[in-house]
């Protein structure tokens, strides 16, 4: 403060761990909004092929003719992609800083083997980084399968509905999906609470409890919402 150079202090702070965490929080919340919309779309599978494919087509027609065909979708995709990239970039930068701060050993930097999980660390907080990597890999596979139609377990199709139903009739496709969702669940459980706290919303013990409950609720909604369609397909309720 003695320097009086507020601008300099501010530009340094823009690269601080606080700012990076805020970036992760904002991008994370954007992705959660996307997940909720995506989940809503998935549930359309229960309306049958017409409803589901119609919804997919509608997504490309939003704001037409103000925007060209699929224009709105591409805008959303760009925002989403930017969020993902910024989220990953921040995560790796912060990961690197944490490793440097702890001699590369993180929470396992003590010689003792006692109390390695600390006093109260939750499993969710323990797995944020590896969980994030698992989710990232899954998303790539998921896009190749259901968006780009490049890999096509169960048979390729021009109809998104058909692709989905074909895929989730195979046990390992469902299993991989379930595993990814469990990783996502843990990630969201800590991530949602942590995002709000990083943005400065954790003002008291009361809010802390509320934010943690909120995180659990949102996580469960997303988890259930995403699990129902593939399990229903696998069980043969949707065909």
């Amino acid at each position: 403060m003695s320097t009086g150079n507020v601008a300099g202090v501010r530009s340094t702070a823009a690269r601080s761990s606080v700012a990076l965490h805020a970036a992760m929080a904002v991008t994370g919340l954007i992705m959660i909004l996307f997940l909720l919309a995506h989940m809503y779309g998935n549930l359309k599978v229960f309306e049958g092929q017409q409803g589901f494919d119609g919804y997919a087509a509608y997504l490309r027609e939003i704001a037409q003719p103000l925007l060209p065909h699929a224009g709105a979708l591409w805008i959303l995709r760009v925002i989403l992609l930017a969020s993902v990239l910024l989220h990953i970039f921040s995560a790796f930068t912060l990961w690197h800083r944490s490793r440097s701060a702890t001699g590369g050993k993180g929470g396992w930097r003590y010689e003792t083997t006692k109390n390695r999980r600390g006093v109260q660390r939750s499993y969710a907080s323990f797995t944020m980084r590896w969980g994030g990597v698992v989710i990232g890999l899954f998303v790539i596979y998921h896009l190749l399968h259901l968006s780009a139609d490049v890999i096509a377990p169960g048979g390729a199709s021009a109809s998104p509905y058909q692709r989905m139903v074909n895929g989730f009739q195979i046990w390992w496709v469902v299993l991989s999906y379930v595993i990814a969702l469990i990783a996502l669940g843990f990630h969201l459980r800590h991530g949602i609470w942590s995002a709000f706290a990083s943005l400065g919303a954790n003002k008291s013990v009361g809010t802390r409890r509320f934010l943690n409950q909120l995180a659990t609720v949102v996580m469960l909604i997303i988890l259930v919402g995403f699990l129902v369609p593939p399990l229903a397909i696998f069980a043969g309720w949707v065909s």
């Binding site: 965490h21 912060l94 800083r97 440097s100 660390r121 907080s125 706290a197």
Partner: peptide, 15 residues
């Protein structure tokens, strides 16, 4: 916060 980072401390993940 700038000094905190300059000292090499890690960021907070709200654990």
């Amino acid at each position: 916060v700038n000094q905190h980072d300059a000292e090499g401390f890690g960021g907070c993940t709200q654990i």
